[in-house]
């Protein structure tokens, strides 16, 4: 009799502990997944901002850089290809965005050769805006990748991996820079 009650109490306690642990881990996973989503949204905002700034830049630069049609066209083309993969997965998008970043980098490098352009207030403001947007993309990506790392670790490590499997948490995808040249800003010397 007495032993029976003790066993029942123990069983109930164990079940309660398990439920609490389950809820705790589950909530932790949800929180991390939301963090990943939020971090991705931040990148998205910046990518959109860059996308919107480019026509303005091309318009401003066009008059000054008559001999750099290739560079300008490369930017416009990269921008269009970003648009076509807008609904694709992280991997494809990061590739297209990486190429756009590189094309822009080349444009700014070439712009150094045009003193008139560099004196244009509108261009300077756009340059500040775009370079900073570039930074923001990479800082947001940094935070996103860190969030994905933490989240993926949680979904793969015991015991949270069991709950992740049961409730369908999938591993997040890293936002990698697939274009190797974009990792380092192009260095051009005009000596």
């Amino acid at each position: 009799m007495d032993i029976g009650i003790v066993i029942i109490v123990i069983v109930i306690a164990v079940v309660l502990i398990l439920i609490f642990a389950f809820v705790g881990i589950y909530n932790g996973l949800v929180k991390l997944r939301n963090q990943v989503k939020n971090a991705w949204a931040q990148i998205d905002v910046q990518l959109k901002r860059r996308f919107d700034l480019i026509p303005n830049l091309v318009e401003t630069v066009k008059g000054y850089m008559k001999h750099e049609r290739d560079t300008l066209e490369a930017v416009t083309r990269a921008r269009t290809s970003v648009q076509t993969v807008a609904n694709a997965g992280v991997g494809e998008r990061s590739k297209a965005e990486g190429e756009l970043g590189m094309a822009l980098g080349r444009l700014f490098a070439v712009a150094e050769q045009y003193p008139d352009l560099k004196a244009n207030q509108n261009f300077l403001a756009l340059q500040e805006e775009l370079t900073s947007t570039e930074n923001k993309i990479s800082f947001a990506r940094q935070y996103y990748n860190d969030s994905v790392l933490t989240y993926n670790n949680k979904t793969q490590m015991f015991p949270s991996n069991i709950i992740a499997m049961m409730t369908g948490f999938k591993a997040g995808e890293f936002f990698e820079v697939t274009v190797p040249a974009e990792k380092e800003a192009p260095k051009v010397s005009f000596s």
């Binding site: 980098g105 700014f108 490098a109 712009a111 150094e112 560099k118 300077l124 340059q127 500040e128 370079t131 930074n135 790392l149 933490t150 670790n153 380092e184 800003a185 192009p186 260095k187 051009v188 010397s189």
Partner: peptide, 22 residues
């Protein structure tokens, strides 16, 4: 605890891309 390596980056100030307004 987390041992994922975090690479350093190079200076922005002074690179060609960063010139001008930077």
């Amino acid at each position: 605890g987390l041992t994922e390596p975090v690479p350093l980056r190079s200076a922005q100030t002074g690179t060609a891309q960063a010139g001008g307004a930077y």
